[in-house]
Amino acid sequence: MSKTLLYVLFTIYATATVGYMVHLIWRRPILPKASLILITAGVLLQTWLLGHRWWMAGYLPVTNLFATLFFFSWALALIYLYFELRYRIRATGLFVMLLNLVLLGGALPRNTSVSALIPALDTPLFSLHIIFSFIGYAFFAMAFSIGALYLCQSRLNSELLPDLPTLRRINEEAIFLGFGLFTLCMIAGSIWAHIAWGHWFSWNIKSVWSVLVWMFYAGMCHAKFVRRWQGGVYAWLSIAGFGVVLFTYLGIGLLLESNHPLE
């Protein structure tokens, strides 16, 4: 993958983020619109880059830290686009795109080459496991951003941000969709583990924390029915949940040894 195109992509997203920032100060309606156009262009470019890498490698190239950060960033941008087009959340994009810049910025200095696929990963179940996993993570990242924004809005009551019921609604939707997709990721992973290692649940730290992520968000899908927890508590839980996701994705891969190493 060309590093130049990666920097172009980063610049597009960074300009869109600056657009949202400037809008907070100057409040020109053209700015969020321009940012949305830039993000759409960025998503299209990133989709092309991802498709090209997939085509060149002959398999979904999400096997190292660069590739996972790149895929995560793509999924987050795509999901933001979905929520933006569905709910017109505008300034909310600042928070999400800042997170996206962190992900893409983390990928930029890393080696972009595609390594040979190890035989155990050569199965469609691996691709399904990865796709559902990172799209699930992206929804959780979206919920984290919306949760943080909910807490800001509950204090600021700003006209620039969506109202609290809308933020709550988006947060619940992000958690629910993320949980569903992460569930499918766990199922694809379990079936794959059964045919690759002969047992569908493994007691390695990555698998255990994946179950913890699943249980946490399963709990959140239930917690929305507890009236006292709707809104504020739910927003805090979304933030805490993303902490669990980050530890499962990055913490275990980078700090501890696991069967899902990140290099």
């Binding site: 913890l212 249980m215 946490f216 399963a218 709990g219 239930h222 917690a223 029915f225 507890v226």
Partner: peptide, 12 residues
């Protein structure tokens, strides 16, 4: 529902 949340939280 609260029992479910309590058990899931404790296990987590």
């Amino acid at each position: 529902l609260k029992l479910a949340i309590a058990l899931a939280s404790a296990a987590t």
